[in-house]
Amino acid sequence: MKAIKLLLLTVIFASVTFSCSKESLDTPIQGLNPSEYYQELNISYGSDDGQKFDLYLPKNRSTSTKVMILVHGGGWSGGDKVDMIGFKDIIRQDLSDVAIVNINYRLANDSRSPYPMQIDDITSVINHLKEHRDYYVISGDYGFFGVSAGAHLALLWSYAFDTGDDVNMVCSIVGPTNFTDPAYLNSTDPNIRALMDLYGVAASTEFLEEVSPYHRVTAAAPPTILFYGGQDPLIPTTQGTAMRERLQQLGVTHEFTLYENAGHGWLGLELLDTWSKLKIFTQTHL
């Protein structure tokens, strides 16, 4: 069984690191039956083609059923919710009582900045879930699970935009946390510069702090679990260690794991360790 799970997790991170949808099911005219499993793909929460999410509702759910929101990576300008399918599958297998929302958001390009556009999209998803809570038969308690740029968005929304105190936990896998980090500001790596430039060429320190979870976190932040790779070419180790120290300073419940020899993603036993820790953290806090 352990070997099967390890193989599944390896496939999951391989698809996420190196980045099918079925057709939507017909929506019942009257509310959903909570005793039955339900899924609906490509639910629109806005007018843009990128504003869609997939919904997976467990059977025998109630208004106490918690909701995990998956946020894909891709450097804010790429990626797709299909990249998170593997994570969706392992959550359904091991946390079968959790509802799952796998989101797309509008992607940044030369004419539209990721901020506040993508934060606004997460807000729209949350508002949609709240408005349809009774119809879906779910609770108003949410968790976030983000990878890379999606982890940055998950942290930032949870720390600075959760005005209803609805987020119970947030997970960051290799998520950027601090754009004022000298490892970013002084970098000459063209890949890092391209990512930074999405938030504005020569952006002010004030703005970079505004879009940094490190600078927006408060003592009221939800429990946070962080995973980083010591050899990540895109996310300096300080993005994780400084965030850990800030959470510790504020007294926020948190866990931190650094895989010293891993890069921007990992496989094998390290990935199995990630899921083992995340599963327990979710069961405890979501």
Rank of each mutant, 00 (worst) to 15 (best):
V217Y: 00
D162K: 12
L25C: 08
T180A: 00
P176I: 15
I12R: 00
R106T: 07
L198G: 04
I192H: 05
L198Q: 13
K88W: 02
A3C: 05
G146A: 09
D166I: 11
Y214S: 12
M84W: 02
P190E: 07
H215T: 03
N261C: 00
G143N: 06
T177F: 03
A262S: 14
D165H: 14
P182Q: 09
R61L: 15
G265N: 09
H264Y: 10
T177A: 14
N261K: 07
V16C: 06
S172N: 11
Q30T: 11
A194L: 03
I122M: 13
D110K: 14
K88H: 07
L32Q: 10
Q231E: 15
D181Q: 10
V101E: 08
N127I: 12
S111Q: 13
Y105S: 10
V16F: 05
N42I: 01
K88D: 12
D54Q: 13
T10R: 02
P28M: 02
I138L: 05
P116I: 08
A151V: 09
Q39T: 15
N33G: 07
R92G: 10
I103Q: 07
D273Y: 04
A149K: 04
D181N: 14
D141T: 15
G229L: 13
S24N: 09
T10Q: 05
P222L: 13
L25A: 09
D121Y: 00
N102Y: 14
I69P: 08
D141C: 12
D141V: 15
Y105C: 08
P236D: 07
I85Y: 00
M243G: 07
G31F: 02
V170E: 03
W275Q: 05
G263P: 01
T238F: 00
K5R: 14
V101L: 10
S24P: 12
I173N: 03
F281E: 04
V11Y: 01
L9E: 00
D97H: 08
L70G: 13
S15A: 14
L7Y: 04
P58Q: 08
H264W: 10
D273F: 07
S47P: 03
Q51R: 03
A194P: 01
S19V: 11
G200I: 15
D94V: 11
L271S: 05
A3Y: 05
L6C: 04
S77M: 12
C171F: 06
L208C: 03
S212T: 10
L267D: 11
D181H: 09
W76R: 01
G146I: 11
L25N: 08
T237W: 04
A99G: 09
Q231I: 13
Y159Q: 13
D232I: 14
D273M: 10
A183Q: 11
T274Q: 02
L153D: 04
S113R: 09
G265V: 14
I173S: 04
S111G: 04
T205Y: 02
K277G: 06
G31P: 12
W275P: 01
W157P: 08
S139Q: 08
L57F: 02
P236S: 05
N33M: 10
G230C: 11
S111E: 12
Y135D: 14
A3S: 10
Y228S: 09
V82T: 11
W275G: 00
F207E: 05
D94E: 15
L271R: 02
S77V: 12
P190N: 07
D166H: 06
